[in-house]
């Protein structure tokens, strides 16, 4: 179960909406923060905290690509390969990250340091190619820049 502090946080979110189910997306983010990913247990906690059936929690969670349905590494690299990034070399960067950090799209490196997620546009097209590492934007990427940036995430 969530602890008291988390439950209080969810109560405050519920108060912002006329119906409690509206707090589902924010609560799933909280569960992900608390558990690291949306395990069965994490979704059960959300279901209980909101009094929304588990099937609905799972159904909603499965629809959105930013919820993690398996454990992830310490840092999540979210690299965009949509058209503005692609035409400026993003697909080669996927290969580079794969070789240099032993992590494939959708996977996690053996040392559990990085997970790699291919994104569908992160709104940084004017400074493409771009990625988010956890919640930090990194733009105008090249192989060299990626090395400099990722070496800081231990």
């Amino acid at each position: 179960m969530f602890n008291e502090t988390v439950l209080k946080e969810i109560e405050e979110i519920k108060a912002k909406y006329p119906e409690r189910r509206s707090a589902l997306l924010p609560s799933l983010y909280i569960a992900q923060r608390e558990f690291g990913w949306l395990s069965h247990e994490a979704m059960e906690c959300v279901s209980k905290a909101l009094n929304v059936p588990e099937a609905m929690v799972r159904g909603t969670a499965s629809f959105y690509s930013m919820y993690k349905h398996k454990p992830v590494g310490r840092h999540v690299i979210q690299l965009c390969t949509n058209i503005s990034c692609m035409i400026l070399g993003a697909e080669k960067l996927v290969d580079f990250i794969g070789t240099r950090y032993e992590v494939q799209p959708g996977g996690t490196s053996p040392d559990n340091r990085f997970s790699l997620v291919i994104m569908e546009c992160i709104g940084a097209c004017g400074t493409a190619p771009a990625m988010l590492v956890n919640t930090d934007f990194h733009e105008n990427l090249s192989e060299k820049r990626i090395e400099e940036i990722l070496d800081k995430y231990k």
Binding site: S84, E120, C121, G123, C125, G126
Partner: peptide
């Protein structure tokens, strides 16, 4: 929900 690829005007 500025998601249309190529769009970063609202940011």
């Amino acid at each position: 929900d500025e998601g249309e690829p190529g769009t970063f005007k609202d940011r």
